[in-house]
Structures are given as structure tokens and as C-alpha cells.
Computed example of a mutant assay.
Amino acid sequence: MSGLQRIALILVIIGAINWGLIGFFSFDLVAAIFGGQSAAFARVIYAIVGLAGLYSLSILFKPSEELERSPEPERH
């Protein structure tokens, strides 16, 4: 798994935790930290998490052996 895929996965997990907090406790952590849902920076965070979710779709459709295979160092 590449570094970009790991970052996207972390952002998706953060988004899932935020949605869980909204669903169970009606508490939006991102909005609480960044000044409300309509605050510019909170909207940027929502957008980045959304883009990470879309990018993570590529992980879903990759063959599992491609994800498990670690890159081998080049031999000279």
C-alpha cells in the first residue's frame, strides 16, 4: 500500500469517526474544532475527507495480492 493510499485511509477513518459521533451523540467534532459547519476551514476538511473517500475506492478494486506485495529493492 502506497503512502498516498495510507493517508487517504487515515482520512477516511477520521471521517467515519466523525460520522459515528454525529450519529450516536449529535456531535460534529470537525465543526467543534474548526468553528462550525459553515466555517471555511471546516468545509476544506470535509472536502479533503470526501476526496480521500473517493480515492479510497481505488483500494477497493485493486487485487489483494497487489496490495500485499511489497516493492522489492532494485538489484544492481
Score class of each variant (00 low, 15 high):
residue 56 S to A: 15
residue 66 E to Q: 07
residue 22 I to D: 01
residue 17 I to V: 15
residue 28 D to N: 12
residue 15 G to S: 08
residue 65 E to T: 07
residue 30 V to G: 00
residue 66 E to N: 01
residue 68 E to V: 01
residue 15 G to L: 02
residue 34 F to Q: 09
residue 65 E to S: 08
residue 61 F to W: 02
residue 37 Q to T: 13
residue 70 S to K: 15
residue 16 A to R: 11
residue 12 V to F: 01
residue 42 A to M: 11
residue 55 Y to M: 10
residue 6 R to L: 12
residue 33 I to L: 06
residue 35 G to P: 07
residue 38 S to Y: 02
residue 73 P to V: 07
residue 70 S to T: 09
residue 33 I to T: 13
residue 41 F to N: 05
residue 28 D to M: 10
residue 51 L to C: 13
residue 53 G to M: 07
residue 65 E to W: 13
residue 56 S to F: 11
residue 40 A to R: 07
residue 68 E to K: 14
residue 22 I to G: 00
residue 45 I to Y: 00
residue 16 A to W: 09
residue 49 V to Y: 03
residue 66 E to R: 06
residue 26 S to P: 00
residue 19 W to N: 07
residue 13 I to G: 08
residue 50 G to K: 07
residue 51 L to Y: 09
residue 50 G to H: 04
residue 57 L to R: 03
residue 56 S to T: 06
residue 33 I to D: 06
residue 2 S to Q: 15
residue 63 P to Y: 14
residue 61 F to M: 07
residue 63 P to V: 14
residue 18 N to V: 02
residue 76 H to D: 08
residue 37 Q to A: 14
residue 5 Q to N: 13
residue 61 F to S: 07
residue 59 I to D: 06
residue 2 S to W: 10
residue 16 A to Q: 06
residue 7 I to P: 00
residue 60 L to M: 08
residue 1 M to K: 08
residue 24 F to N: 15
residue 18 N to Q: 09
residue 66 E to M: 01
residue 73 P to K: 06
residue 40 A to C: 02
residue 31 A to T: 04
residue 4 L to Y: 09
residue 13 I to C: 10
residue 24 F to R: 11
residue 11 L to W: 12
residue 8 A to Q: 01
residue 19 W to P: 00
residue 1 M to P: 12
residue 30 V to S: 03
residue 58 S to F: 15
residue 43 R to E: 02
residue 11 L to M: 08
residue 68 E to N: 11
residue 18 N to H: 09
residue 19 W to A: 02
residue 29 L to T: 12
residue 53 G to C: 12
residue 28 D to K: 01
residue 27 F to M: 12
residue 10 I to F: 00
residue 63 P to N: 14
residue 13 I to S: 15
residue 58 S to M: 11
residue 18 N to C: 02
residue 30 V to W: 01
residue 74 E to F: 10
residue 28 D to E: 00
residue 76 H to P: 08
residue 41 F to A: 11
residue 64 S to Q: 13
residue 17 I to C: 12
residue 14 I to H: 01
residue 20 G to A: 10
residue 63 P to A: 09
residue 36 G to Q: 10
residue 18 N to I: 04
residue 68 E to G: 04
residue 5 Q to W: 05
residue 68 E to H: 05
residue 37 Q to R: 14
residue 31 A to G: 09
residue 39 A to C: 03
residue 55 Y to A: 14
residue 62 K to R: 11
residue 25 F to Q: 11
residue 22 I to H: 01
residue 50 G to N: 12
residue 17 I to S: 11
residue 25 F to Y: 15
residue 1 M to V: 00
residue 26 S to Q: 12
residue 39 A to D: 06
residue 60 L to T: 01
residue 64 S to N: 09
residue 62 K to A: 14
residue 30 V to N: 00
residue 11 L to V: 02
residue 53 G to T: 08
residue 62 K to E: 05
residue 41 F to I: 13
residue 45 I to H: 05
residue 11 L to S: 09
residue 73 P to H: 08
residue 28 D to Q: 09
residue 69 R to W: 02
residue 23 G to R: 10
residue 17 I to H: 06
residue 66 E to T: 01
residue 61 F to L: 13
residue 60 L to R: 09
residue 12 V to R: 14
residue 72 E to V: 14
residue 9 L to K: 14
residue 25 F to S: 15
residue 42 A to K: 03
residue 65 E to L: 12
residue 11 L to N: 05
residue 43 R to L: 04
residue 25 F to T: 09
residue 24 F to Y: 14
residue 42 A to L: 02
residue 53 G to I: 03
residue 52 A to K: 03
residue 18 N to T: 15
